[in-house]
Design a protein around this nucleic acid. Structure first.
Length: 221
DNA sequence: GTACAGATTGAG
DNA sequence: TCAATCTGTACT
């Protein structure tokens, strides 16, 4: 696991980490198989000072406790009673800042360097209800691959993430971690307002959402 | 115990 | 545009 991102990557400034997460690979190991996705969209939540954050004004609840872990841990929570949201903690211990992963691009081939798959191991095939059904030739738009991971709730479904990952350490976990991916140039990074936080007053205008320009897996334009 | 909002999503 | 769906939180 030579290329696994180390603690030092995560324990830096949250906005910097949010930008540098773009292009990184999420590796999810399920039994003897791997799911791999490239991060293409993120949002930064800057703890106590950010009204959109769950830890605004140092609010501490049973739900948001994982936000306070040092950089490199998973803060996952259920939204609207239906969708899990994958967050990666940043900065130092007891600094409740994190990055929401809003969209990933599924990687068909396992092209992570320096990782050899032992015999008998293989990547998970990316399957869609349409391909599984093998029905008529025309693919219904709602079954397109991009619709599997182009939103924070959907990517958690695809990666099979749930409450059991609460507080998981990406630096040491055997079932999920991040590896170095494609270098994203500053010119390829678009910064905009965050999604779905209209209640956050002045904070809703902060350009703390980042995505890779022209990437088809970004959630909304 | 009850009420209610919410870092979403897909259908209409 | 709108409702599904359920946990955490703040109430009574």
């Amino acid at each position: 696991m030579k290329d696994r991102l180390k603690r030092e990557f995560y324990t830096r400034d949250t906005l910097l980490v949010a930008k540098e997460l773009l292009g990184k690979y999420i590796i999810r190991k399920i039994a003897k198989r791997f799911l791999v996705g490239k991060i293409v969209e993120t949002e930064a939540y800057i703890g106590p000072e950010d009204k959109a954050s769950h830890s605004y004004q140092w609010k501490i609840t049973k739900r948001n406790l994982a936000e306070f872990l040092e950089g490199g841990h998973i803060y996952i929570y259920l939204c609207y009673g239906m969708y899990w949201q994958l967050n990666i903690t940043t900065s130092k211990n007891c600094t409740p800042e994190c990055v929401l992963v809003r969209a990933i691009e599924p990687i068909n081939e396992f092209k992570i360097k320096n990782v050899t798959l032992p015999a008998g191991r293989q990547e998970l095939k990316i399957s869609t209800p349409a391909s599984a059904g093998a029905s008529a030739g025309r693919q219904n738009s709602k079954f397109k691959i991009r619709n599997l991971t182009n939103g924070p709730g959907k990517l958690c479904d695809w990666l099979k993430l749930d409450k059991s990952f609460y507080g998981e350490d990406l630096v040491t976990s055997k079932r999920i971690w991040l590896e170095d991916g494609e270098k994203i140039l500053p010119l390829q990074i678009i910064a905009t307002k965050r999604i779905g936080i209209d209640y956050a007053e002045i904070w809703k205008h902060k350009p703390w959402r980042f995505y890779i320009k022209n990437n088809p897996f970004v959630s909304v334009e």
